[in-house]
Computed example of a mutant assay.
Amino acid sequence: MRIAIFTDTFHPDINGVARTLKHFTTYLDDQNIVYKVFAPDSHSNEYVSTHIRRFKSFSFFLYPECRLAFPNLFRIKSELQQFSPDIIHVATPFNIGLCGIYLAKKLNIPLVGSYHTDFDYYLQFYDLQFLSKILWKYMNWFHRPCKKLFVPSNETLKQLKQQGFANLEIWSGGVDCQHFHPFYDKKTVREQYGLSKKYLLTYVGRLAPEKDLKTLLAVAKTLPSEINEQIHWLIIGDGPQRDELQNEAPENMIFTGFLKGEQLAEFYSASDLFVFPSPTETFGNVVLEALASGTPAITANSGGVKNIIQTGVTGYLCEPGNVQEFVIAILLLLENHSLRKQLGLEGRNYALTQSWNNIFANLLWHYSKVIDEPKIQKYA
């Protein structure tokens, strides 16, 4: 099987789409499956591969980590014909994605797509709700040629069905449980970074309006002072709201910027709770990473996160934006060590069932079905 992937974001970009695709291409390398990625250039030149064709680009205003590229269509067509893929996978609905759809039609190559980002929900955080109908019309038009459209959760599948999308299949996220685990030396991690207070509460993600970090700040300020004095908040990530949030944040809140690798995994493991108020997730990769690290998650009861968190088993789901519900859940778990430990164990057990290898093997099976479909029709 030869796979061409068209995406407007890829490693080393830091977002869910880029990270998922990097896991996928690593899997393809391990399986000796030939692929080629067409993607925009990156802020960083740390990752170079002969499997990737990069294009000059600029940031998209709603999602700066997703870039709008300036691809040369004739050059891509020539490269694609030379590569001769069995299937094209379009992962994002911007310029590179449009090239993938056009060339799949032009060269009669089987086409699949994936839907990763709830841009419609994003609109309300940027006061652009009036664009909702136009956005859905575009998304429907963009994805209509796909023989299959992969979505990361049942919640997203329901949402797209209501909007008239067809050929939907679940392609959920996974987690590397050998990298994210509860067995890092928590005491050493805390000492190394001067985290001396009793509890460590962590958020990981973009610092942007659609993540509803205003609710997180309100929660931190609403907790009783006698508890707050025992808490260190760790805000891991970066984005357009960082300066504003830092100016408004309480003194016990530390902003680290983006972290990755073992350092990120250590912080997950050392944390007592993972607090994630974002209502806009189609899946919630960081939530699954927290569970793999044995850290219970308190999240917004919205989007794909609802399919990961089971209230009272692996964490707690709170009404989006409801500060009091988040506060109650945090206090319940901080004051009940045995419950917190039990939720951590259950979260780890759940994460162990979410293997990337199984998820990608299932995706390749769907690819094979799409590739074989014209042959079956021909001989039917």
Rank of each mutant, 00 (worst) to 15 (best):
I33S: 07
G97M: 11
Q354D: 00
D86G: 11
H366P: 00
K211M: 11
V175K: 04
E335I: 12
Y138Q: 07
D8L: 02
Q354M: 15
A4D: 14
N95Y: 11
T222C: 07
S355K: 15
Q162W: 02
I328A: 11
E281N: 03
L131W: 08
E266T: 08
L234A: 06
M1W: 01
T282R: 00
K198P: 01
D372G: 02
N72S: 10
L291N: 08
D118K: 04
M253Y: 12
K137R: 15
Y379R: 06
I376G: 01
P296N: 04
I236Q: 12
D212F: 14
D118Y: 12
S57V: 04
D176M: 10
T25S: 08
T7N: 05
E266R: 15
F70C: 13
Q263N: 13
N358M: 07
D372P: 00
L107I: 03
I52G: 06
S271D: 10
K186Q: 14
T188Q: 15
E335A: 14
S59D: 15
G344Q: 06
K56F: 14
G97V: 09
D238P: 02
G347I: 12
F61N: 01
K147S: 12
P85A: 10
Q178G: 12
F258Q: 04
T353F: 05
K147P: 00
Q162V: 13
D127P: 02
P250Q: 11
Y122Q: 05
S153N: 03
D272M: 05
F94N: 10
K161M: 13
N95F: 13
L339G: 08
E251I: 03
A380W: 00
S302H: 08
E281W: 05
P296G: 04
K106L: 03
E325W: 04
Q246C: 09
I236D: 12
S114N: 07
D372I: 01
R19Q: 13
S225V: 00
K106G: 03
Q324I: 15
L128W: 09
R190F: 00
I236W: 10
R54S: 09
T26N: 09
D243T: 13
T280V: 13
L68E: 09
N301K: 14
S172L: 00
T202E: 06
I52D: 08
E65A: 07
D13K: 04
V90Y: 08
D30F: 10
V175C: 07
V112H: 05
S78P: 00
I328F: 10
G294V: 13
L111T: 09
A4V: 12
H143N: 14
A18S: 15
V327N: 11
K260M: 05
A265R: 08
L201H: 10
E335H: 11
